[in-house]
Design a protein around this nucleic acid. Structure first.
Length: 476
RNA sequence: CGGGGUGUCGUAUACCGGCUAGUACGCCUGCUUUGGGAGCAGGUAGACUGGGUUCAAUUCCCAGCACCCCGACCA
């Protein structure tokens, strides 16, 4: 039987074991690519349904653009192509002959979408223009890891055009705060910081990159979603112009934003334990599993199981009636799959007109009268959703550190978690910090208060531009 | 892409320059079982790929590929 490594002993192995034992995904025969198995894909489908719903509530419309992008398109935005060229997959042949112009398998779709924007947008009346697509993208990453960094991954990418820079910024932040933060915290139960990326860390071609960032159980940070204010960087290259109210032709200001299958990696590393996957109730493909404990009177037990399942029809319920497995084996199996709540019904319970409810996160067991089950299930799932978030938040807060000297900084980074320090923001300085500590700046917190006075960079000692401390951490 | 490591049934492993590649778990069939990884019986399935050395290669050598770890890259 495949066993799960302990987090404390081999975190990386633990991560892979949780995925294998949870039956989420496996490596494909193609380098760096994964096969997302039905149970793992069901989680993704829940993510898609929820995020898509949140976007649509905000007036976002879905569309679909080609997988292939002419090479010349990428080259139109210099920083963009420079940032992405090392990781591109290029198609040189099609239909048995060499292509006139190579096609890039999209690593992201700004270029091909903005070519369409240039033909679709004419007037200030067309703005804001808002499009999203759910798609696969390909980035030839050097070091793939299931869900966290795969050669091909699934995501949504939203693209907008606005009349002004301020409006673009506002929109980028709206998506970040109202969609990504809320989804991460309310559905994934994963606490996130919002922040702005440094020059060195921002998206290739962006004016500003905003992010949500979450702390994993091994003390590393995971960028879990991004929202970019692209300013008019791309609209100049792709000639996306509109006739403004004042009769002037102007370039649009743009945003792009995305979350990907990486979220599943974040979900795993936020909640799961040494027994396997732990899923927040709101994203669990199976929220409740009912396991009969069969003695002689099978029929009676089975009908009790079915009747309880029927009462719980508003939840995703699975009844495990397999007769070749002992109850214990079923417990282990569903625990590895992270099912939030297990209900056991056996002869003893039948006598008491009750069932045993067992929570996945705490292992707490309780006997519950049959008539109360729907209410209790609802309460427990809600409580679990909240307490998973609270536990993750507590873990993050307890590992947060402030460092105002280099010595403190080096020590704090080694301990894991976020380290908050003043920082000049310069790329060269950041590169040196990385060389010395392996840590990089993760973000300049959006909601932190500015502190009066002059501040100097933790590393180079230069006066800082911002009156806030940056968050540094080891990162995925 | 640089440095290191690993490739044996689905998983974990054993042995071996030569004989039918062994074991456990899994899986399949049947019966008996079922309150935390059940029992019996029968069955299924394997040397990453390609070259080389050799009378003989899963074993030794080389290359490729894949995975893992450390860097650089990254949602």
């Amino acid at each position: 039987m495949k066993t799960i490594a302990k987090r404390s002993e081999d975190y990386s192995q633990w991560y892979q074991d949780v995925i294998a034992c949870g039956d989420l995904a496996e490596h494909s025969v193609v380098r760096g690519c994964m096969v997302i198995k039905p149970y793992g894909y069901a989680i993704w489908e829940k993510i898609v349904a929820t995020v898509d719903g949140m976007l649509k509530e905000r007036g976002v419309k879905n569309a679909y653009f080609p997988l292939f992008i002419p090479e010349s398109f990428l080259e139109k935005e210099k920083k963009h192509v420079k940032g992405f060229s090392p990781e591109l997959a290029v198609v040189t042949h099609g239909g048995g002959s060499k292509l006139e112009e190579p096609l890039i398998v999209r690593p992201t779709s700004e270029t091909i979408i903005y070519e369409s924007f240039s033909r679709w947008i004419h007037s200030h009346r067309d703005l804001p223009f808002i499009i999203n697509q759910w798609a696969n993208v390909v980035r030839w990453e050097m070091r793939p890891r299931l869900f966290l960094r795969t050669t091909e991954f699934l995501w949504q990418e939203g693209h907008t055009a606005h009349a002004t820079l301020d409006e673009a910024e506002e929109y980028a932040l709206m998506i970040l705060n109202e969609v990504y933060v809320r989804f991460a915290q309310d559905y994934m139960a994963m606490p996130v910081y919002t922040g702005q990326k440094s020059e060195g860390e921002k998206f290739a071609g962006a004016f500003k990159t905003f992010c949500i960032e979450a702390l994993m159980q091994d003390g590393k940070s995971l960028q879990s979603g991004t929202s970019h204010n692209l300013s008019d960087n791309f609209s100049k290259s792709f000639n996306v112009v509109f006739l403004d109210k004042d009769g002037q032709k102007k370039n649009v200001f743009q945003t792009s934003w995305g979350v990907s299958t990486r979220l599943i990696g974040g979900l795993i590393m936020t909640h799961s334990d040494d027994k396997g996957l732990v899923l927040p109730p709101r994203l669990a493909p199976v929220q409740v599993v009912i396991i009969p404990i069969v003695k002689d009177s099978n029929e009676e037990i089975f009908s009790a199981v079915k009747s309880v399942a029927k009462q719980l029809s508003k939840f995703s319920v699975e009844t495990d009636l397999r007769d070749n497995l002992s109850p214990g084996e079923k417990y282990y199996e569903w625990e590895k799959k992270g099912v939030p709540l297990r209900i056991e019904i056996g002869p003893r319970d039948l006598e008491n007109k009750a069932a045993v409810l067992v929570r996945r996160d705490t292992g707490a067991k309780e006997s519950c009268p049959v008539s109360q089950i729907p209410k209790r299930v609802e309460e427990i799932l809600e409580d679990m959703q909240k307490s998973l978030f609270a536990a993750a938040l507590k873990r993050r807060e307890e590992s947060n550190k402030i460092a105002d000297s280099w010595k403190e900084f080096e020590k704090a980074i080694k301990q894991g978690g976020y380290v908050f320090s003043y920082f000049c923001g310069e790329e060269s300085c950041e590169a040196e910090i990385k060389k010395k500590t392996k840590a990089v700046s993760r973000f300049l917190p959006l909601d932190a208060k500015e502190e009066e006075g002059e501040h100097t960079c933790i590393h180079c000692g230069k006066k800082t531009a911002h009156k806030k401390r940056w968050a540094f951490a080891l990162a995925y």
